[in-house]
Amino acid sequence: MTTASMQKPTPVLLVAVVGLVVTLGIAISQLTSQGHAAFNTNNYGLYWGFPIVIYDYFLLTSTGLAMVATLALLYGGEEFRPLVKRAIWLALAGLAGGVAVLMMELGHPLRALWAIPTSFAFSSPLYWKVICVSLYVISLLLLLAKLIKADGSSVRGSAIVTLVLAAAVTAIAGVVYGSQSFRPFWASGDIPAAFIFESLLGGLAFVFFFTYMAYGFSAERLPQGVRKLFDGKLPGLFALAIFIHLVFVLGRMTTGLYGNAEGLQVWHHIVGSPLFLIEIFVGLLLPLVLMLMAGTRRSGPMQILAALLVMNALLISRYEYIIGGQLVPLFKGSWAPPLLSYTPSMTEWMLLLVAIFLSNAVNAFGERQFRLGEER
C-alpha cells in the first residue's frame, strides 16, 4: 500500500513554521534584551533550568525512536518495516528541536561547537556525550539515506551502528546525572538503564502519535501493515515499556522517601506536588490500563490518547528529575532556604514551543519529501 491515504502534511508544516517564527522571535527578543537573566535559575545551586529539561526530553525521545527503529530492523522482521523510516526521521526531527533549545540556552553557542570537541576532557561524561551525539546524527543520516534508496544490502550494518550509538548517548546522559555523588537525588548506578527504558517508552509513544497524525488521526486511513502492528504486538510492547518505566519511578520514589542522605528530603516535596500525581495516575497508570484492556488496546482513539498522555508524563518526569535534583542547596546558610523554588520564565516556556514547532516542521517536511509511509 502506498501513501495515497495519507493526509497532506502541508497544513501541519504551515502551522509549525508560523508557530516557530513567532515563538523564536519572542525568545530571541527576550534573550537579546535580558541575556541569561531571562532564565529563572539562580546562584544557590539551581543552574540547570527548563531549557535543559527540554533538551534532555527531546534527546532521549530521539534516541528512543532510533532504538525502536533499529531493533525493528534487526529483530522485528518485515512486519515492522512500515514504521522504520518514520521513526528514524522523527529521531532527527526531535533532536533538531532539542539541540536548538540547548544552543539558545548556552551563552556562546557557536563557541561550544568547536570548544567542546577540542577540549579533550576525556574524564568528563559531557565531553563523550557531545562526541557520541555528533556520531549519532551522522549514523541516523546514513541509515535514512539507505532506507530511502531501499539499499537492503547494507542497512543491517548501519542499523547496528545506530543502535549502539543511540544506546551510548542515552547511557552517557544517565551517567552525567548518576555519577554526581554530591547530589543524592540524582546519584545512582541504575540511572543509565532507567534512561534507556524511558527513552524506549518515549520512542514508542511518538511512533503511535505521529503515525496517526500522518494519517489525519484516522485509524481507517492507516496502511494495512501499520494497522496490523497497531492491532497486534505494538500495544503490548507499549504497555510493557510503561510498566518498566513506572517501576523505576516508584522504586526511586520509595528509596528516596525512606533514605536519610542529604538531598533526598526533596522527595517529600515532590510526591505531594500535583505534577507528580498527574504523571503517575494520569500519564502512566491510565495509559497502562488502556493498553492492557482488550476493549481499548486496539482502539485508535485510545492509542492516540495513551501516547499523548505518556508523552506529557515523560516531560513531567524529566522536569521533576532535573529540577528536583537541584532544589536542596549544595551549601546551606542563612542566605539560602531549606528548599529552593523554581518556576520557568516566559522565555523558557517559549523555548519549549520553539522545540515543539521546530520538530513538527522538520517532521512534516520529511513526510512531504521522503514518503515516510511507504511500505517497502
Rank of each mutant, 00 (worst) to 15 (best):
L285M: 12
G283A: 11
L327M: 15
A306C: 09
L257C: 01
V289K: 05
R221S: 13
S299A: 08
L200R: 13
Q265G: 15
R227Q: 09
A205R: 00
G283F: 07
G272W: 08
A239H: 12
A313Y: 11
A241I: 11
I280P: 00
L201M: 14
G295S: 14
T296M: 06
K233V: 12
L275H: 00
P301K: 02
A219C: 00
L309K: 05
L330R: 10
S273G: 06
V310R: 04
P287C: 10
L285Q: 00
G259A: 14
L285T: 04
L240R: 06
W267A: 10
L327I: 05
L290Y: 04
L327T: 08
M291K: 03
F276T: 09
L290S: 02
H245I: 03
R221K: 15
P223Q: 09
V247A: 14
M213W: 12
Q326V: 10
G300K: 07
V249S: 02
D231S: 13
R227K: 15
Q265I: 04
G300P: 05
G283S: 09
I278N: 01
H269W: 13
Y258W: 11
L234Y: 07
F243W: 05
F206P: 05
A307R: 12
G236T: 14
P287T: 12
I323G: 04
D231T: 05
Y215M: 14
Y258H: 07
F217I: 08
F209E: 11
V207K: 10
V207Y: 12
L309A: 07
V247M: 12
I316S: 04
L290W: 03
P223E: 09
F248G: 06
R298Y: 02
L246T: 12
G324P: 05
T211F: 01
P223I: 08
L204S: 13
A219W: 03
L234S: 03
V310D: 07
F230I: 06
L315Q: 00
G216D: 12
A307N: 11
G283V: 05
L264W: 11
W267D: 00
I270T: 05
G216A: 12
G256S: 07
W267V: 03
G283P: 10
V271Q: 12
F209W: 15
I323S: 06
R227W: 01
M291H: 10
P287Q: 13
A306R: 06
W267E: 03
Q265N: 10
L314N: 11
I304H: 10
S299D: 09
F248K: 04
A241C: 12
F248N: 01
N312P: 00
L234M: 14
I270H: 00
Y319T: 13
G236P: 07
P329G: 10
A219F: 01
A294Q: 10
Q326D: 08
M213P: 00
P235N: 03
L234E: 04
E198G: 15
P329Q: 09
L330Q: 14
L240T: 10
L284C: 08
I242M: 01
G324K: 01
L200G: 14
M293C: 02
